[in-house]
Design a protein around this nucleic acid. Sequence first.
DNA 1: TTCATTTTTTAACATTTGTAAAAAAATTCG
DNA 2: CGAATTTTTTTACAAATGTTAAAAAATGAA
Lengths: 188, 188
Amino acid sequence: MEQLLKKITSVYPLKNDSLNQLIAEMKPIELPKHKILVEAGQVGRSVYFIEKGIARAYCEGKENQITFWFGLEGDFVFSYNSYINGRPGYESIELLENSLLYEIKDNVLQALFRENIELANWGRKLAELELIKLEERYIARLFKSASECYRELLNSSPLLIRRIQLGYIASYLGVTQVTLSRIRSEIR
Amino acid sequence: MEQLLKKITSVYPLKNDSLNQLIAEMKPIELPKHKILVEAGQVGRSVYFIEKGIARAYCEGKENQITFWFGLEGDFVFSYNSYINGRPGYESIELLENSLLYEIKDNVLQALFRENIELANWGRKLAELELIKLEERYIARLFKSASECYRELLNSSPLLIRRIQLGYIASYLGVTQVTLSRIRSEIR
DNA sequence: TTCATTTTTTAACATTTGTAAAAAAATTCG
DNA sequence: CGAATTTTTTTACAAATGTTAAAAAATGAA
């Protein structure tokens, strides 16, 4: 709960009243490893916050899955397409560990946005921050080799690499698992 | 002007009052080809709308520039980092043609967001739509070869390819210009 | 622990992409 | 128009990554 509060107010400052309106609607929920939070082709009707656990978002290719996002403690989780357009997303989101989440129903959140300007601006800021994070990743991939990206991941989130299997990380970096193995062997 | 109105209301429906508040602050401005709208390392203090023209966003690498975004008629233009965090961005944005833009000062826009809940939600939606577009591009790059991306670009925006020089498009696709030339020669 | 399963690493070879340099084509401007 | 400049294509070779398959290591369940 503490982490959730810290995250919410770091996005955009809220007066107590607005903050309470928001957290009153966020319900704790425990879910097991391998649980699919959002299924590709379906509309995800909730936004989650990761209090404890890891999630990954991936798309099904013809013969392979491609993981393009990891969520750790302190991250919000949503299918952008569902959240933003109310349309089926092309990604699935899966828990990689037994996790403790907070859940808020999408229609509840949208109603808060319509009625409370502070929360509307909070929602704006949330989307904006996601946008910046995604842009950074996008640009990093244009500039850096998979090898550089891996080294940085190792520095910035060593936990992530220990907790997530390499096949997922390889596809996240845009290379095959064989190539990632080669990269790793060069480092040690 | 017509295009601008259409775009604004397609982002999020606005009552006339809010719409007028917003467009009253958007000033037309003509700028020449090669004009730098936003300089990397500086804080961009405006958001632009492209009524006529093309822009590209790029980062300076050690020995090369990498173009990662093109804006066409109907697009909003901003340095995400500046717009969202008020911090210097790592990207520059350059006009590729003599262009007609509409400009709104960032502080004016932020003030509108704080005071008008419809506009706050409009701003939220704008960021959300940018987020979706970026996610689509991000995922496309994970899944598709440069060759497929080029073919799709050719289908979806043939104009773009005729109006923009290939070196920029190559870096946008994440390959060298030589590789893009090879791809093009295979198609015909 | 032990066996079965999953994950990671290694190897050999094929394919793709990059680099550097030159040629060809297109564009710009006096 | 025509020369100078810029952009695009082509070539030959080098380097990186993918593919397939097998071996090694790690993990999980009985």
